[in-house]
Design a protein around this nucleic acid. Structure first.
Lengths: 187, 187
DNA sequence: GAAATATGTCAATATAGCTGACATAAAAAG
DNA sequence: CTTTTTATGTCAGCTATATTGACATATTTC
């Protein structure tokens, strides 16, 4: 069931709780095993963002730029307000990063047609290219993971991640994904 | 299979690829669906760390303190070198944070017995208490998630997270978990 | 016309990381 | 027993990312 977690020299698997004691899972989880999940999540995220970080260095950009470019690419025509809500940062924080992306020609802003106060953000061709490269890097990790995982576990990954999101944020996330599907398309 | 992802008003699920086209999964994943996993991972991690952040504020500590305290608590007697390797930061970065934890009485350092150059790090009772509180907060999220998830998906979560870790880091992570199990115990 | 909204901007501050250079004590190697 | 390596500490300066608070402007809505 968890071959990938096994060392060649038989040693205990990273997180054994769910297999070890299926009956008393909820009780036993609390102490040590949830802690292991916490740590795995930490390590996984650390490596996950590392991929993109290395590419971004070549452009003089950081993670903040990545996030902005990513969401603008995913939802062309995104407003400042929508971006702020997605990123959960202040407009002052966003502005520094966004200005750099605008100046460097990776993102464009156009006045909204229905509401001219709004600035609708679009990736430039150059921005779209970088966004695709970054997305490819991170997607590759997921692709590799899905290949490694037993087929039964594959669908579980997205369920798991979605369940990890704050319940009161889920609707927003769902809305974002729905809009990205309409707008961004196959890219 | 993915009830938790469903809106009450029937709408497409966040990540439908693995169910949508089991046969052509690998091909179709690349474009849009791996991207959704990337985003879910981002949102999930954002909310996951948010829990602890709020508690840490009361103590004037940040995430960096949390990570140090966490690993010291998990592996009492940890050396500086081991901590640096786990956190993947420089000793200068660590030192500022560690000094604050030492000064505030959350962590203690004792000269190593076999090698007196080493400083073995231990949580104080106060440090252990805070570490447990933080761990409980983050464990709770996992516990809730595991309850939400269909039983079949539960074991998959740890497999998934472990598979997300860089292959050349996995041995280190396994070693960490093994040591934590011996040392930290049920805490 | 007044009020609310979307956005921009200036200034000061905090946190968390980095590089580079140098210092010290203890262990290991010769 | 001297030299070298190792484990750690520390100073100084820099960068990236975020914050709060205050104020400005254009546009829309009431």
């Amino acid at each position: 069931m968890s071959e990938i977690l096994q060392r060649k020299t038989t040693v205990s698997t990273p997180v054994a709780a769910f297999r070890r004691a299926p009956a008393k899972a909820a009780a036993q989880l609390e102490g040590a095993d949830a802690l292991e999940l916490v740590e795995l999540f930490f390590f996984a995220y650390r490596d996950f963002v590392g991929d993109a970080d290395r590419l971004l260095e070549n452009y003089g950009f950081g993670r903040a730029h990545h996030r902005v470019l990513h969401f603008v690419h995913r939802r062309p025509g995104l407003t400042i307000a929508a971006l702020l809500e997605t990123l959960k940062i202040t407009k002052q924080s966003l502005n520094r990063v966004l200005k750099q992306l605008l100046d460097a020609g990776f993102v464009e802003a156009h006045a909204g047609v229905v509401d001219r106060r709004q600035r609708l953000l679009y990736p430039t061709p150059q921005g779209a290219k970088l966004a695709r490269e970054l997305a490819a890097l991170q997607s590759e990790r997921f692709l590799r993971v899905m290949e490694e995982l037993p087929p039964a576990a594959r669908g579980a990954a997205s369920q798991f991640l979605f369940a990890m999101i704050d319940p009161n944020e889920r609707e927003r996330v769902r809305a974002h994904l729905a809009r990205a599907r309409r707008k961004g398309g196959p890219s």
